[in-house]
Simulated assay, not measured.
Amino acid sequence: MGLDRDLLVGAAVAAPGLTLVGVGPGDPELLTVAAVRAINAATVVAYPVAEPGAEGMAARIAAPWIAPDQRHLPLLFPMVEEAEPRRRAWHAAAAALAAEVSAGAAVVLLCEGDASLYASCSYVLLALAERHPACAVRVVPGIPAVAAAAAAASGEGMAWPLALQQEGLLIRPTPESPEELIGLLEQAAVTRTVLALLKLGRRWRWVQPLLAERGLLTAALFARRVGWGDQLLAAADQVPAEAQPYFSLLLIRQSWPEVLP
């Protein structure tokens, strides 16, 4: 770490309440000053885990900024497709957090990436508003993976501004079918919209040849586990058409604005 925790956060005063903190995609140095200060001020650090006893990715990202005397509160967020187990988990997490705040604790809930963009903690936020409206909540935004990927690629000689001039930017999960992706690509081409496709994972097996057929593979940026030690940034034609980790994404630009340097 090249940062001094004490110099960065300064004095922090704990106040009862809950702060949802986006911790960015993986690099602890990509946390905002506001995020670090919120963590430093907390008496309780909550974070999602996929199963009991597991290490939370958000907690791992923020680990350099968590003090030894802060109490940890892992919250179970099962990675399942069924709606009801996830709904129960959101409400259980909301109840646990509200109870801590009611007891006078200053609590942070750590969230991977941005706290409002495809974030599990967004559902906790909604559950709190529904069942625990008296719980004081604030949200600290984080750097999303798409922005971190574009920045990291540009720093490695692959100039990749996310959007220019009148370009649109569409961020969404990778479609489940080739037909849906083709529709997105055609609409994006007409509207000069850059596509940022998240949660690429196993879908890369059919996305890669589809983009190759349409001549879009070479100019697309593939990013995997942005901000982690095993980060991969590459032109998409350099990545084999095989299943990729869940935290993989793709940036697709089909044309450039007319006015460029």
Rank of each mutant, 00 (worst) to 15 (best):
A58L: 07
R202G: 00
P28V: 06
A89W: 13
E156H: 15
L126T: 15
I252E: 02
W160I: 08
L7F: 13
V49D: 00
A62K: 06
A188T: 12
G17H: 08
A96M: 11
G201D: 00
T191H: 15
A42K: 07
L184Y: 12
L184A: 05
E81V: 11
A147F: 05
P25I: 00
R60W: 15
L76P: 09
A243C: 02
V107M: 08
V124E: 03
L97V: 10
L73W: 00
G53W: 03
R172Y: 08
D114C: 02
S120Y: 11
R225K: 12
L164Y: 14
Q187H: 13
L233A: 01
G215W: 12
A234N: 08
A11E: 15
A98V: 09
Y123P: 06
V137T: 10
V207D: 08
G183F: 07
E242G: 11
A196Y: 04
L73Q: 13
V226L: 04
G183W: 02
W204E: 00
M158W: 15
V190F: 13
D6I: 10
E180M: 06
E112T: 11
A83N: 11
L117G: 03
P144G: 03
A188F: 11
V146W: 14
S120W: 05
A106K: 07
E29F: 00
T218L: 13
A152N: 03
L181E: 05
G142Q: 08
V33D: 05
V44F: 11
V137E: 02
R86G: 00
W228M: 04
A15Y: 07
D69S: 05
A63L: 10
Q244P: 03
A42D: 04
